[in-house]
Amino acid sequence: MPAPTRIAILTFDGFNEIDSFVALGLLGRARAQGFAPELCGPGASARSMNGVSVQLQRPLEWANEAEVVLFGSGLYTRAIAENSALLDRLQLDPLRQLIGAQCSGALLLARLGLLGGAPACTDNSSKPFLVEAGVRVLDESFHARGPVATAGGCLAAQYLASWVMHVKLGEAAAREALRRSAPVDEQDAYVERLLSKIRPFVAA
């Protein structure tokens, strides 16, 4: 039996629930195909921007071992980006990992030097901070260059999840997994919309 695909969904205090839970829920639909998504962070638990406390499944350093690492956004991302002691615990490598971020999470990619000069997607509130960090921000919901992707807008979590599925499992398996989460009378159109958004970047 092949080894599982470990997926670290980085979740810090003040996290946006949509970012973490949508990614966790969608990627969990592919557990039968070996996906093992888990929430990880620097503490035993994290409190969301709306006051929801969750028990984290893995420590922060687990992300260094995972095959896929996804950064969500949150209330305190700018402070986290300036916390070198915290970020130094992450030793990520795009040569062996898929790495994605959405909204303010893209700022953490920039601070870790993972964008490599590529442009990024983010939300309007986070855009000034990315620009200040020297990142060219796209007015788009999803963009990837090789193994690094960014997404803008809370519900763009579905694009990151679709991208991971497509890259790791192929389009047919991604389509099947995504259909299980789609609205009942919209499956074909919903899944095709997701895949059409990320397909050009997978092909590239």
Rank of each mutant, 00 (worst) to 15 (best):
S196N: 15
D123W: 02
S162K: 11
C103G: 09
S48W: 09
T11Q: 00
R96Y: 02
E65S: 08
L138C: 08
A189M: 14
G41V: 12
A81I: 13
I18N: 02
L160M: 12
C154A: 03
A157D: 03
S45W: 02
W62H: 11
A172V: 09
V184I: 11
D139H: 13
R47F: 11
D88C: 05
M165Q: 14
E61D: 03
Q97E: 04
S126W: 00
L109F: 09
P94E: 00
Q33R: 01
L160K: 11
R31S: 08
L195G: 09
G113C: 05
V191D: 01
L160C: 15
L75G: 06
D188A: 10
S53P: 00
D139A: 15
A173Y: 06
G14S: 01
A172F: 14
Q102F: 01
G51W: 03
A101H: 09
L27N: 02
A189H: 11
G74H: 14
A177H: 07
A44W: 04
F201E: 08
L138N: 08
T150M: 08
E82M: 02
V54M: 01
R193I: 09
F15I: 09
L24P: 01
L87P: 14
D185A: 06
F35M: 08
S125H: 04
M1E: 13
E67G: 15
A182W: 13
A66R: 04
A151W: 04
G170Y: 00
D19P: 11
V68I: 15
R175T: 02
L169K: 00
G105F: 03
T5V: 13
R136W: 09
E67N: 07
L155S: 05
A156D: 12
E186S: 07
W163I: 14
R6Q: 10
E65H: 08
C40H: 05
A204W: 04
A189D: 05
V137K: 11
L87Y: 15
E140R: 06
G117I: 05
P4M: 13
A172C: 10
R111M: 12
N124C: 05
R180T: 07
N16P: 13
A81F: 12
E17V: 08
